[in-house]
Amino acid sequence: MANVIFYILAVIALTSALMVVTRKNAVTSAVYLIVTMCAIAGLFVQLGAVFIAALQIIIYAGAIMVLFLFVIMLLNLRKDEFGFDTRVFQRLFAGLLGIVLLVQLIMVVSRLPVVAGQPVDTEMGRVAPLATKFFTQYLYPFEIISVLLLAAIIGAVVIAKKKMGK
């Protein structure tokens, strides 16, 4: 049963990922990316990493995708500006980098000391162990981040506020 679900999710993730790079319309690509993210979140759930799955949906499928869509719509591209970049060199270079990444991935994955069928440590991805880490060992960085976010908000407001300078 778990296997079947895994393959279904994997197929959805891969197909929509393919759609992301092949669609001409940037908005369509963005929406397909949401599907990919959700499918990956499903994979996380299968591994028992519920919290990561939730983060995946909230942050990637939610916040970041909204940002993407905003930018695409703000840019307000004309019809003929959509679609593939026709510069050959760039495409070749991108393809080359993709192949390098693929080889790297295969090398890393093939050397992982993981035996198939081994049960996953489902405790790792839950909220409690993460929270324990955040509020003990990583308390200081955790608190700094809260101030950092505040600084970023103040900065954004200062920049966006009207009636400034001369």
């Binding site: 990583y138 200081y140 960085p141 700094i144 981040i145 101030v147 950092l148 600084a151 970023a152 103040i154 900065g155 200062v158 920049i159 400034m164 300078g165 001369k166």
Partner: peptide, 25 residues
Amino acid sequence: DLITIFLGLEMMSIPLYVLAGIYRG
């Protein structure tokens, strides 16, 4: 800790980005 150094760096830089552009006019 390297993480703390990174966060300190960001904490220092983000206000600086804004301060550099504070003279919006």
